[in-house]
């Protein structure tokens, strides 16, 4: 069992940078372009890792710590993540809170590094990132709490284990609500389109991009890789609920989960192609709506008992 967990971890580490490529190709498909290669992010990472880093003289160790600690937090969170019904490498009661905390640590160090540059732009991006995350994080926690209540387990590996098909049979509405809330969280936390447009380079509209303007070389590679891992993390939670296949061999289950991730990236690409970015003042409305969905799901699970 441990072998399949480590294999799943390796799959996550290797395939996470593929998903942004899938999203970009989907958008290109919709726009009638050929698009960048699927492996573009791997090439970018390779290019950046070979470069040297330039540090502004006003920055301190906080600026250099940001990308490193961020990547470490993302990898640590990946250790807690079950994939395709197989348990995670590390699992204990209440590890869902640690997962959210690690995502919070990733964000905190990224934001402090952005603030450390002293640039007005980066401060603005940092403030927005924190503002929207403050709304998205409770949604994630409440959705996971609803899952925990429904399955009676408080570790992620237990929650996303064998009980998922039974949950779909008994509480389909609650599960649907959880899935939609998690999808909004996925879009918001990864700065995808209804919340932030990852393609823009207008300083007034971007959130995530603006925070990493002063990073270069290996630091930027770490940040991009950590962002891809974050997408993989939140996506795997969603796929773990949506693909309720548990009675098949672990290797096949992992393969279906990876296929599910590719489909999820495709879905995100479709959303990005069909929607415009929301006005900045409307984003909290979207997140509060997702919070409403998650809370209703939690209420449904509470009433069932």
């Amino acid at each position: 069992m441990a072998a399949i967990s480590w294999a799943n971890l390796l799959v996550g580490l290797c395939l996470a940078p593929l998903l942004p490529g899938v999203i970009a190709r989907t958008k290109a498909l919709f726009a009638g372009r050929r698009g960048q290669p699927l492996a573009q992010l791997y090439l970018d990472l390779w290019k950046l890792l070979r470069k040297g880093a330039v540090y502004s003289s006003v920055t301190t160790w906080v600026f250099r710590a940001g990308p490193v600690v961020g990547l470490a937090a993302a990898v640590a969170a990946l250790l807690l993540l079950p994939l395709g019904g197989a348990p995670a490498v590390v699992a204990f009661d209440g590890d869902l809170i640690l997962l959210v905390a690690l995502l919070g640590a990733l964000r905190f160090f990224l934001v402090t590094a952005a603030l450390d540059t002293g640039s007005a732009f980066e401060g603005m991006g940092a403030s927005r990132e924190m503002g929207f995350s403050a709304l998205a994080e409770p949604v994630l926690l409440v959705a996971l709490a609803a899952m925990a209540r429904g399955t009676g387990e408080t570790s992620l590996s237990g929650m996303f284990g064998a009980t998922i098909p039974g949950e779909w049979a008994t509480q389909p509405h609650a599960m649907l609500l959880i899935v939609s809330a998690l999808f909004v969280v996925l879009l918001a936390e990864n700065s995808r389109i209804p919340v932030d447009d990852p393609n823009t380079h207008l300083e007034l509209t971007m959130i995530h991009e603006v925070m990493v303007l002063d990073h270069g070389g290996p630091d930027l590679a770490f940040i991009l890789y950590a962002a891809a891992l974050k997408f993989w993390l939140l996506g795997a939670l969603l796929v773990g609920i949506v693909v309720p296949l548990r009675e098949i061999p672990p290797a096949l289950a992992a393969a279906t989960a990876v296929a599910g991730m590719a489909l999820l990236a495709f879905a995100v690409g479709v959303v990005e192609s069909c929607m415009a970015r929301l006005r900045m003042s409307r984003v909290p409305q979207l997140l509060v709506g997702a919070g409403g969905l998650a809370t209703v799901a939690l209420m449904l699970e509470l009433v069932r008992s």
Binding site: V288, V296, V303
Partner: peptide, 17 residues
Amino acid sequence: GYPMSVLIGVASLCLCL
């Protein structure tokens, strides 16, 4: 405001339950 209305709605759902 809209977010506030939704929050009040969710709170009243809890109350009703």
